[in-house]
Design a protein around this nucleic acid. Structure first.
Length: 480
RNA sequence: GACCCGUUCGUCUAGCGGUUAGGACACCGCCCUUUCACGGCGGUAACACGGGUUCGAUUCCCGUACGGGUCGCCA
């Protein structure tokens, strides 16, 4: 028995084994990203699902960094993963900076552990060195059965499967060695092997991952068996596709988690939206507190079909959350975002005025970058939108009406929303028309645009002097 | 090319043999309103196709088509 001389491995298997036989051992899920670029939205969603599953079962969520490919890994990518997960509120119970005794949680620091398991495999006759000096795993002669909690069960013959591979050049299948490489000639280990070893060592009980890993799973099951451990439960979740229906790539809108951070999305909103891709509460709820999602999160609520990412709906959900935050929080969020843009235009205005303007914008905003569109309507004194200006110019009564409105606004003593309303009422009375008649023209003149924030509060925030000078200049500009 | 997986409005989805096929985003219309919105109400819009099974299929089975994934000394 290989395991007799390796008590630590044996005990970790037993621990996991007891989970599978239904005793009370803890559920342990993991997110195991490779730090080769940025945190992908699909990866974040995988992390989220693992986190939800662990939380639902009162278990633990583990973060493991799969950095065995030294050539492609970067420090920045590691940071992006941490930042993205923390931003989403996906706290890990074990992982980098939080070792529970099963670490380290960077694979690049676990070579000794892999060597131990490789020795066991070699002793058992399941691994050998090939002509090139790399170590290969001898795949089982018997087909392996993969029981996926979402995709169902099927049996695959690894020898047959692996004996050919597709050559894109010649567009045909060529002969191949079904025994896959688990260690390079330079001594570094490869994904399939380290992934399985660590799932054993880290006592992972449930593997929830993207459907792109489905085809790898027979290899993993074979490895678990060869290492003498029962495999965890597998659940392959549908992929997130871009608008065009293909796999999301870095160029696609919303593909990178840091874009959400940069654009000032609310993490709760993004988390909520992501949880709705491939999972459903199976009732009509969409906007849901995370506690409710946790309570309902299980295999039965997961879908099988890939989902296209819909940025518009993500923004809508963001606006729903944005509407819930109090004004003070909104202003803070908005200011954080503004500062992050590095734009100079924010700098010129007095802080209280900016805060007041942001409060007026809040109900209109779905997505913080929209502040950029609203900003000039408050703070730019020149330039009227051409189409809007033409519309006002084309209204025969507008010129005189707006002149009257201007004179009433000029007489206001304590410039406020109420006093402005009073002035407008007085103007309407003098003209013998309803206010609605000139509101559009006033909006265009006062803000330079046909649409925007609620007009009265906007006028109040911008200030009397500024509004009057805009009216004068633009009246002249439009009516020549 | 081989092997897997999938297929309900444009998009996310509910549905698990008998429903006027429901909700949400987006879109359109109406109402509300001092403006832009919000909101309220209403509308357009889907079971990929062909065979079975069944008294009856969106639901079950088999094909076809389409979409996706995998086939590395990447993860």
């Amino acid at each position: 028995m290989v395991w007799d001389s390796r008590p630590s491995q044996f005990s970790s298997c037993r621990r996991r084994g007891s989970v599978l036989t239904g005793s009370m051992t803890q559920v342990r899920t993991r997110f195991a990203p490779s730090p080769t670029g940025y945190l992908h939205v699909g990866g974040a969603r995988t992390a989220l699902f693992n986190w939800l599953f662990a939380r639902h079962h009162g278990g633990e969520f583990v973060l493991r960094v799969e950095d065995t490919d030294a050539a492609r890994n970067t420090e920045e990518a590691v940071r992006a993963i941490f930042d993205g997960l923390r931003w989403l509120g996906l706290d890990w119970d074990a992982g980098p900076e939080k070792d529970d005794g099963r670490g380290p949680y960077f694979q690049s620091q676990r070579t000794g552990i892999y060597e131990r398991h490789l020795d066991a495999l070699t002793e058992a006759g399941r691994a050998y060195v090939d002509e090139g000096g790399a170590v290969r795993f001898r795949v089982p002669e018997q087909p392996v059965t993969v029981d996926d909690k979402i995709c169902g069960s099927r049996t695959i013959d690894l020898v047959e499967e692996g004996s050919t591979c597709y050559d894109p050049e010649s567009k045909q299948n060529v002969a191949a060695n079904p025994d896959f490489v688990i260690r390079r000639a330079d001594g570094s280990f490869l994904f399939h092997f380290v992934n399985v070893v660590d799932d054993i060592e880290m006592a992972i009980t449930h593997v929830i991952r993207g459907g792109d890993h489905l085809a790898n799973t027979p290899k993993h099951v074979a490895l678990f068996e060869a290492l003498g451990c029962p495999p965890p439960e597998f659940a392959h979740i549908p992929l997130i596709l871009n608008k065009n229906g293909s796999k999301m790539s870095k160029r696609d809108e919303g593909a990178s988690m840091d874009s959400y951070i940069r654009e000032g999305f609310l993490p709760e909103a993004v988390r909520n939206y992501l949880s709705l891709l491939g999972w459903s509460p199976k009732d009509d709820r969409e906007k849901m507190p995370i506690e409710d999602i946790i309570a309902l999160f299980d295999y039965d609520h997961l879908n099988h079909a890939n989902a296209k990412f819909d940025m518009e709906k993500c923004q809508w959900l963001n606006s729903e959350y944005l509407a819930d935050v109090d004004a003070e929080t909104f202003v803070k969020r908005a200011r954080d975002w503004m500062e992050g843009t590095g734009e100079s235009m924010w700098q010129d205005e007095a802080a209280p005025t900016v805060d007041a303007a942001l409060r007026v914008m809040q109900p209109k905003i779905k997505h913080l970058p929209e502040i950029k569109e609203h900003w000039p309507r408050f703070f730019a004194d020149d330039g009227v939108d051409a189409e809007a200006g033409a519309k006002v110019a084309g209204d025969p009564g507008a010129k005189d009406q707006l002149g009257v409105v201007r004179s009433h606004l000029a007489q206001v003593e304590d410039w406020s929303e109420d006093s402005i309303t009073g002035a407008l009422d007085a103007a309407a009375g003098e003209l013998g028309i309803k206010k609605g008649k000139f509101m559009f023209g006033l909006r265009v003149l006062a803000t330079g645009a046909a649409q925007g924030t609620d007009l009265l509060p906007t006028l109040a925030v911008v200030g009397q002097e500024r509004i009057l000078s805009r009216l004068d200049r633009r009246l002249a500009e439009i009516f020549g």
